[in-house]
């Protein structure tokens, strides 16, 4: 009896990953056949280099955003402001490094505190004042880049501080630091949601908010928290983005990344209507998007038309996830077979 139930649970855990993983596998198969050097890895100065490592490295920003976004979407909301919060975080860090001589941990601390404050703002609007998430976070999405501009006085601030450049460009045990950062955050988020009751509360609020409130779940607080957490994740992603290019560019840092993050979550199997969420699925989704981007780049698809094949590939994965399409498709195959 007990083992039977265990198997059932295992099957469910895997089944949520089947479609995003097979999408990614298809794409990698395509690259294996048609893109030269895609799977080449080499070791230089003790660090791993190669296209796959690049994908992990460059995908880490969307992965970080997708972690926060997964929890937000699981409550039935959405956070459009994460790209703007990235810009704010980069601006704060660059400004502090260049104009004050506070120590590095203080810079990181203040930057993340500002990102958390941005999350609190969203959380208050959605959790306490019950403003629709899309509207509430749109406010900061629009205003956020202005705030970042104010912090940087409208300039692009460059920096050379070694610790700050390490975040986006350094290596740890052979792998780029952002890979460790997003992996670590995945672990922390998974522990936070699955080793405490937070995951249950988030899913219950997303599934039926009224029923959850009547059962004693503090829905407003749960909602507040997920936006704060999303802000925090955006802060980390903002640090990585600024560090990557060694400057704070308020106009372009994290531009449109909120859309990639939402896509990653959806590709990962979490429904936009809320309820069950899949963190690992969202990570696979983020990698899928990054692999697509890299593939386009390596195949010399011009940047102007690259979004078209990208959109097509994402469409295929989303269709694969639709039970309706799947039954139609398998019915078609059966008819062919017989």
């Amino acid at each position: 009896m007990a083992t039977e139930r265990f198997e059932k649970k295992q099957a469910r855990w895997w089944s949520s990953l089947v479609w995003p993983v097979s999408g990614l596998a298809l794409l990698l198969l395509f690259d294996l056949c048609f893109t030269d050097g895609f799977f080449k890895l080499e070791v230089r100065d003790g660090h791993l280099y190669g296209v796959l490592i690049d994908i992990l490295n460059h995908g880490s920003k969307v992965m970080l955003l997708a972690l926060g976004m997964t929890l937000v979407i699981a409550t039935g909301g959405v956070d459009l402001s994460v790209g703007a919060v990235m810009a704010i975080a980069g601006a704060v860090a660059a400004r502090l490094i260049n104009t004050t001589n506070v120590s590095f941990p203080v810079v990181i601390g203040v930057t993340l505190a500002v990102a958390i404050a941005a999350g609190c703002w969203n959380g208050l609007l959605v959790g306490a004042f019950r403003i629709q998430p899309i509207v509430a976070t749109l406010i900061l999405m629009v205003a956020g880049r202005g705030v970042a501009m104010l912090i940087t006085d409208g300039q692009i601030i460059t920096f050379t501080e070694p610790w700050l450049t390490y975040i986006g460009n350094g290596h740890l045990l052979g792998l780029p630091f952002p890979v460790w950062l997003s992996g670590g955050m995945l672990l922390i988020t998974a522990l936070l949601t699955r080793r405490t009751a937070l995951g249950l509360f988030i899913e219950s609020v997303g599934d039926n908010q009224t029923a959850s409130t009547y059962a004693g779940v503090n829905s407003s607080t749960v909602k507040f928290f997920v936006y704060v957490f999303s802000g925090f994740c955006a802060g980390l992603a903002g640090l990585v983005a600024a560090s990557n290019i060694k400057c704070a560019d308020s106009n372009h840092a994290g531009l449109f990344l909120e859309l990639d993050a939402i896509l990653a979550v959806v590709v990962g199997g979490t429904l936009l209507t809320g309820g069950r969420f899949y963190l690992v699925g969202a990570m696979v989704g983020a990698l899928f998007i990054q692999t697509l981007t890299t593939t386009m780049y390596m195949r010399n698809v011009s940047a102007d038309i690259a979004p078209v094949p990208k959109a097509l590939a994402i469409l295929v994965v989303c269709l694969l996830q639709s039970p309706k399409v799947r039954t139609k498709f398998s019915g078609l195959l059966k008819r062919r077979g017989s």
């Binding site: 599934d207 039926n208 009547y214 059962a215």
Partner: peptide
């Protein structure tokens, strides 16, 4: 509308109120 969490399991529906009263930490 006000009672069940339709897409969640029987187990989760049953423990929800108790877990909500115990709070986050005591999973």
């Amino acid at each position: 509308v006000e009672g069940i969490l339709p897409r969640m399991s029987v187990r989760e529906n049953i423990v929800l109120a108790l877990q909500a009263r115990q709070g986050l930490g005591q999973m």
